[in-house]
């Protein structure tokens, strides 16, 4: 679980000393990996407390690992992403998205920021069909229609009875 700075003790003496020494060893042995992790975290708009907590989580996961090269980097980043996911109580992409959009991490959209953003991008689809209707483009048919309309109009005119004044 994520803790902010108020949750940490200020004096690393006493029972914490052993853990601290162990952590210092891990940090010293994995300086390159941790530098990469720092570089990654610098690109996220993290608060100082969040950054420290994430770093701590990575260090804890690196403790006692017997790996090197890409496996070690992969382990470190898997730990970092797990920790990021913990920030939102969900998915690490949701956490990164919250940080990108300057939203309170995990505090909005029920921790499902990706799904929320998708809905904002494209509302729910309500399908309707849109198909081209048949268009008769034949010139012969057009000519026939023209003749018919002329004949029809003439017929219509001849069918109208003359109305004389006084005739109902």
């Amino acid at each position: 679980m994520f803790k902010d700075e108020s949750s940490y003790g200020v004096n690393p003496a006493g029972e914490l000393l052993v853990g601290w020494t162990e952590e210092a060893t891990v940090v010293a042995n994995n300086a390159l990996v941790l530098a990469r992790v720092e570089q990654y975290m610098a690109r996220l708009s993290l608060s100082e407390a969040q950054r420290l907590w994430l770093r701590g989580e990575v260090v804890v996961q690196l403790r006692g690992t017997d790996m090197e090269g890409e496996a070690l980097y992969a382990q470190a980043f898997a730990s970092l992403h797990m920790a990021l996911a913990t920030l939102t109580d969900g998915d690490e992409v949701d956490a990164r998205l919250d940080l990108s959009l300057n939203l309170p991490v995990g505090g909005t959209h029920d921790g499902k920021s990706c799904r929320w953003l998708q809905r904002q991008m494209a509302p729910a689809i309500v399908r309707s069909s849109m198909n081209a209707r048949t268009l008769n483009r034949s010139w012969g048919a057009a000519l026939l229609r023209l003749v018919q309309s002329v004949l029809r109009d003439r017929g219509a005119i001849s069918a109208i009875r003359r109305v004389l004044p006084g005739e109902a």
């Binding site: 690109r43 992409v93 990164r96 998205l97 940080l99 990108s100 959009l101 953003l117």
Partner: peptide, 12 residues
């Protein structure tokens, strides 16, 4: 590479 940009694009 960019974790923020990647998050926005991936989310979509």
């Amino acid at each position: 590479v960019d974790p923020r940009f990647n998050a926005i694009h991936t989310a979509l």
